[in-house]
Amino acid sequence: TELRLDINGREIKVDGADKETLKELLKLAEKNNDEKAIRIIRHLLER
């Protein structure tokens, strides 16, 4: 399955993203107070 998050109005594919990319996405999600995106990205970073 493909995991996509809508961050800042942009749909971004997050599964398969490297750790650096995920960290950047996490910063974006935190800036937007997007709890769902934050939770998902943190979960991916823990893998």
Rank of each mutant, 00 (worst) to 15 (best):
T1I: 07
T1G: 14
T1A: 09
T1M: 09
T1K: 06
E2K: 05
E2H: 09
E2Y: 10
L3Y: 08
L3E: 13
L3G: 10
R4P: 10
R4I: 15
R4L: 15
R4C: 10
R4D: 12
R4Y: 13
L5T: 04
L5C: 06
L5P: 06
L5A: 03
D6L: 15
I7K: 01
N8K: 02
N8M: 09
G9K: 01
G9W: 04
G9L: 03
E11W: 14
E11Y: 08
E11D: 05
E11Q: 08
E11N: 06
E11A: 04
E11S: 07
I12P: 01
I12D: 02
I12R: 01
K13P: 06
K13I: 14
K13Y: 15
V14Q: 01
V14H: 02
V14G: 02
V14N: 01
D15H: 07
D15V: 05
D15A: 06
D15M: 07
D15S: 07
G16F: 12
G16D: 08
G16K: 13
G16W: 12
G16S: 13
A17K: 10
A17S: 12
A17E: 12
D18E: 04
D18A: 05
K19H: 09
K19W: 05
K19Y: 08
K19P: 07
E20Q: 09
E20A: 09
E20L: 05
E20P: 05
E20H: 08
T21M: 12
L22G: 00
L22D: 00
L22W: 02
L22Q: 00
K23Y: 14
K23W: 13
E24G: 10
E24I: 14
E24S: 13
E24R: 15
L25I: 06
L25R: 00
L25F: 06
L25P: 00
L25D: 00
L26P: 00
K27Q: 09
K27P: 02
K27H: 12
L28C: 03
L28S: 04
A29F: 06
A29Y: 04
A29R: 00
A29S: 04
E30P: 00
E30F: 12
E30H: 11
E30I: 13
K31V: 12
K31D: 13
K31M: 12
N32H: 15
N32A: 14
N33F: 09
E35H: 12
E35M: 12
K36D: 09
K36M: 11
K36A: 11
K36H: 12
A37W: 03
I38L: 11
I38D: 01
I38T: 07
I38Q: 07
R39M: 14
R39N: 09
R39D: 06
R39I: 09
R39F: 14
I41F: 03
I41Y: 03
I41N: 00
R42I: 07
R42L: 12
H43C: 08
H43L: 15
H43W: 15
H43M: 15
L44V: 07
L44D: 00
L44T: 05
L44R: 04
L44N: 03
L45K: 00
L45P: 00
L45H: 00
L45Y: 02
L45D: 00
E46H: 14
E46Q: 13
R47P: 11
R47G: 13
R47C: 04
R47A: 11
R47M: 13
R47V: 11
